[in-house]
């Protein structure tokens, strides 16, 4: 199975994302922002970083990159798509996910190991976890506060589309402690903390993040 990892100008975490894909047992394919060809991949990851320098708004310019036009089309057809951190911001700007990520409420850039609970285990990226499972993975961002209107929040809650919530004190002011959400179909997931930085204890705080990548393999095999 081939998983594409997109590199925009300013992307940071593409190598770790590709390593996590290989660690889970799939083949990682590098995708370039300026190339609309997805080179036969079965799924795509938009990794973290500061694409286009976060100019204008985080993800606002990347969302119009050539590669995104094909990704948006394929995601709407059901292709699994995971956006991590800056990738989550791109997914919101592309309207593949509702809401927006805004400045952390205390204005600080956060970099810490964060406990989150997995709230939805039916998406393409979370089936390896158990409902309510608490995991610890790095959180590192300046604009991670998830905001949306009341009606959108109610539908996310009622439809079980909140993938993960922060445990303990709210780190960034996200509504309802939201750390990640999915679309109605469950193939598109946006996540603010970084599972790709926690796939083994040699290089990360835990190996808790690997489940996002093994989930994808299971969901593709069982499709």
């Amino acid at each position: 199975m081939k998983v594409g990892v997109v590199t925009f100008p300013g992307t940071l975490d593409d190598r770790d994302a590709a390593r996590a894909v290989r660690f889970a047992g799939a083949q990682a394919i590098s995708l370039w922002h300026g190339d609309e060809d997805l080179h036969g991949v079965d799924a795509v990851i938009l990794p973290g970083g500061f694409s286009y320098g976060d100019y204008l708004r985080c993800g606002a310019i990347s969302r119009f990159a050539p590669v995104m036009q094909t990704i948006i089309k394929r995601a709407n057809e059901g292709m699994p798509l995971l956006g991590i951190c800056n990738g989550f911001q791109v997914l919101c700007e592309a309207h593949l996910l509702p809401g927006a990520l805004t400045r952390n409420h205390e204005l600080h850039f956060l970099c810490r190991d964060q406990k989150i609970s997995i709230e939805n285990t039916t998406s393409a990226w979370t089936s390896s976890y158990t409902q309510g499972q608490e995991i610890v993975i790095p959180l590192k961002n300046g604009e991670g506060s998830f905001q949306c209107d009341d009606a959108t929040l109610a539908s996310l809650e009622n439809e079980g589309r909140i993938i993960a919530r922060y445990v303990g004190e709210n780190p960034n002011g996200s509504r309802n402690l939201i750390a990640g959400i999915t679309n109605a179909r469950g193939n598109v997931v946006g996540l603010m903390p970084h599972p790709e930085h926690a796939i083994d204890t040699l290089t990360g705080p835990t190996a808790d993040g690997l489940g996002f990548f093994t989930s994808l393999l299971h969901s593709m095999v069982n499709k």
């Binding site: 805004t102 952390n104 205390e106 204005l107 905001q147 209107d149 002011g173």
Partner: peptide, 9 residues
């Protein structure tokens, strides 16, 4: 920013 959106800056 819309009035209901938090503006930490």
């Amino acid at each position: 920013l819309k009035p209901e959106i938090l503006d930490p800056q």
